[in-house]
Design a protein around this nucleic acid. Structure first.
Lengths: 160, 160
DNA sequence: TTAAACCTTCCAATAATTGGAAGGTCAAGT
DNA sequence: ACTTGACCTTCCAATTATTGGAAGGTTTAA
C-alpha cells in the first residue's frame, strides 16, 4: 500500500502522514526498493485512530499520549480517562469563552440599524473606552498554545 | 510616548505593536531623533480599538476592514453590520462544532470506569471503525484558516 | 561613569496544514 | 521501446498571531 492509498484509507492527507512520521507520532514507514513508503493494515489502523482522535479535538501532543496508552496492553483506563477529562475541560472552557464573545457581539449587532448612515453602535462600542467594559470582562486571559485544537479535521477521503 | 508606554496604555504588547506596523495594520509610527517610535493620543485610540476588536474575536484581516470603516466618516452602518454578522455566524458554527465534540467525548468518559484495568471505552471507540460513526457525523469539514480567532486576547496591561 | 531600563532590528519558534518546485518511478497505451 | 500521466520523493516556504531571544544602541538616574 502506497502513501496515496493509505491516505485514502485513513482520511489523512499524504502530506500529513509524512509529517506525522517526521515528528515521530508514527514509526518510520518501511520503504520499497525505490524509496516509496509502504503501509499495511496495522499502519492504517493507527492512522484511523489518529484521525478519529483528531476529529475528537485532541492535539497532536495528546494523541501521542493516547497512542502510547492504546498500544500498552496493561494500560490503566484511569490514565486515559484523566487525559480525556482534562481535554474535555479545555473544550468546555473554550466553548464558554466563545459563547460570551458571541453574546456580546450579538447584542451589538442587534442595536445596529445597519442602514446607509454612518451611525453604528458596533464601531462606537469598539472605539469607546467606557462602552466596552463588557469585552474586558467577558474575555478571559487565554494561552495561545492551548491544546484544544482549533477545528476538527475534514474527512478528506476523495471517494474516487 | 514610547512604545512601552503605548503598550501599557493599549494593552497590546510592544512586540505586537511593531508587528501590526510591519503588516500595515497601523501606519508607520513617527520616530524620535534616535529611532525610537513615538505615539500620541490618536495612535493609542487606534490601538485600543484593535485590542477590543481582538477581544471580540475578530481576526487581523477583519480588523483591517473594521479600521477602514471606522476611519471612514461616511461609512454605511450596513457594511459594519454585515461584517459583524458574518463573524458572529462563524463564531456560532465553531461553538456548535466544539459542542458536539464535547458531547461525544463526555459520553465516552461517562462510560469509562477509569480504574486500573485496561478495559477502556474511550480507546475502544477511537480504535473501532464502527463504534466511531458519531465522530464522522458530528465533526463537520472545517477550514484551517478560518477567520475566527483561536482565542481572545489577554488583557496584558501591567498595572505597574 | 556606570547600571538599569529602555529601545532598535533580525531571526526563530510555536501548531497543524497546505502549497509548490524539482526530480525520480511506475503502469498503461501507442 | 517510448511517452504520458499519475504517482512518489525531498526540501523549502507560507499560513496566523504571538512570543522569545540575541546583539546592540539610548536614556535616565545614581
Amino acid at each position: 500500500m502506497n502513501i496515496g492509498q493509505a491516505s485514502r484509507a485513513s482520511g489523512i492527507s499524504a502530506k500529513m502522514i509524512r509529517y506525522y512520521e517526521a515528528i515521530g507520532l508514527i514509526p518510520k514507514a518501511t520503504r520499497s526498493y525505490s524509496g516509496y513508503r509502504h503501509y499495511d493494515e496495522r499502519d492504517i489502523h493507527v492512522l484511523l485512530f489518529i484521525n478519529r482522535a483528531r476529529a475528537a479535538g485532541f492535539s497532536i501532543a495528546h494523541i501521542k499520549k493516547l497512542l502510547l496508552l492504546w498500544q500498552d496492553r496493561r494500560r490503566p483506563a484511569r490514565k486515559v480517562k484523566q487525559l480525556a477529562t482534562s481535554h474535555l475541560k479545555e473544550l468546555r472552557e473554550k466553548i464558554s469563552e466563545l459563547q460570551s464573545i458571541a453574546e456580546t457581539l450579538s447584542q451589538l449587532i442587534a442595536h445596529c440599524r445597519g442602514d446607509d448612515r454612518p451611525d453604528c453602535p458596533i464601531l462606537d462600542t469598539l472605539s469607546d473606552k467606557d462602552a466596552t467594559q463588557e469585552f474586558a470582562e467577558t474575555s478571559k486571559p487565554n494561552r495561545l498554545h492551548s491544546s484544544v485544537r482549533q477545528s476538527s479535521s475534514k474527512q478528506c477521503v476523495k471517494t474516487k
